[in-house]
Amino acid sequence: MTENKDNTTHFGFQTVDKTEKVHKVAEVFHSVAAKYDVMNDLMSMGIHRIWKRHTIACSGVRSGQKILDLAGGTGDLTAKFSRIVGPEGQVVLADINESMLNVGRSKLRDIGIVGNVEYVQANAECLPFADNQFDVVTIAFGLRNVTDKDAALASIFRVLKPGGRLLVLEFSKPEQEALSKVYDWYSFNILPQMGKMITNDAESYQYLAESIRMHPDQETLKDMMHTAGFEEVSYQNLTGGIVALHKGFKF
């Protein structure tokens, strides 16, 4: 799926004005922030932790580096990166949603992550950082919620240092039709009911299921990263393509 260049975009299966989507997505994550980690474990049966560990293993992050965990939410990747980069490095946990950022800040401080982590409320489409700042940028399960993904990829490219890399971990398109059917049934029948029981908010999880279907597939996102300037772009399907990890470099 390519980016829509007029003034409308998709919010799940709805067509909305681009300015409206930002507010609608914000409402979703304000609603789910407090229970976000619990729901992630339930929805994925804990597998999201494996996907994130794999992303960290593929990131090449080293001691002393500067990392941007974009749409970092409750800080799962930031916590690991903080320990890897050490006191000489820095991790910026950035999220557009204040509620998610507050949950992430509290969670990380509770587990003793202080000193080398900065918290920034930021829109991925226009990052408030100077050019060539970061060794690695990650965005895990956040790109599909961005209104203008092309703008976000260009903004990420700008703030990466030459030689830096981007990793995009995101729900994608299952490789097998049988898996796709099971996944669709689970997403549209089970997830909203979980959301209703755990967060009293079925609608937000209905949106999240729909947003996955509207997200560009693996090859389309690969092409979008190339267009933004990234080189050696590749992707790896995880769990049969339910999730894909895209990687690209700035040279």
Rank of each mutant, 00 (worst) to 15 (best):
R213Y: 15
D135P: 00
E177R: 07
V159H: 06
Q133F: 02
H215M: 08
D217P: 11
E210L: 12
Q65N: 01
S234W: 02
L179A: 09
T15P: 08
H30K: 15
A202Y: 02
M214N: 15
V91I: 08
M39I: 01
D17H: 09
F157K: 12
F230T: 01
R109D: 03
A33H: 09
Q133K: 14
A178D: 10
K5C: 06
D217S: 14
H10V: 13
G104M: 05
H246Y: 09
R158K: 15
G60E: 03
K181R: 14
G240M: 07
V243Q: 03
M197A: 15
E20D: 15
M225C: 12
F134P: 02
K66M: 06
S187W: 03
L179D: 05
Q121T: 13
E125R: 12
N7S: 13
K250C: 09
S44D: 00
H215T: 06
H10A: 13
K161R: 03
P174Q: 10
A130L: 05
D6G: 13
A151R: 15
D201G: 04
S204W: 03
R83L: 11
A26Y: 08
A124V: 02
E203N: 10
S63M: 06
V233H: 03
D201I: 06
M45Q: 10
V103G: 05
S44F: 02
T199R: 11
F81A: 08
I139P: 10
A122C: 05
G142L: 01
K181Y: 04
K24N: 12
G46D: 00
D6V: 08
M39T: 04
T19L: 10
L70G: 12
N97F: 06
K52W: 00
V32C: 08
P192T: 07
H246D: 01
L208D: 02
F141S: 10
A79W: 08
Q206E: 12
V168M: 04
I242R: 04
G64Q: 02
S155A: 15
K161V: 09
Q133E: 06
S82M: 04
A209L: 05
G75E: 13
M39E: 07
L68K: 03
S106R: 13
N102H: 12
V136M: 05
N132V: 02
N7D: 14
K107A: 14
V92E: 02
I198S: 07
V38D: 11
A152P: 02
I242V: 13
A34N: 15
S172T: 06
A34L: 10
P174I: 11
G12W: 11
R62Q: 14
S31P: 01
V28F: 10
K80R: 14
M45R: 14
G241L: 03
M100W: 11
M1F: 12
E125C: 11
M1A: 15
Q90V: 00
E118Q: 12
L77D: 03
V32M: 07
Y207L: 04
T147P: 05
K173L: 08
P216Q: 14
N237W: 00
V103T: 12
E232L: 08
V146I: 13
V233A: 09
Y207C: 12
D37A: 09
E27R: 15
E231C: 03
L153D: 07
G112S: 06
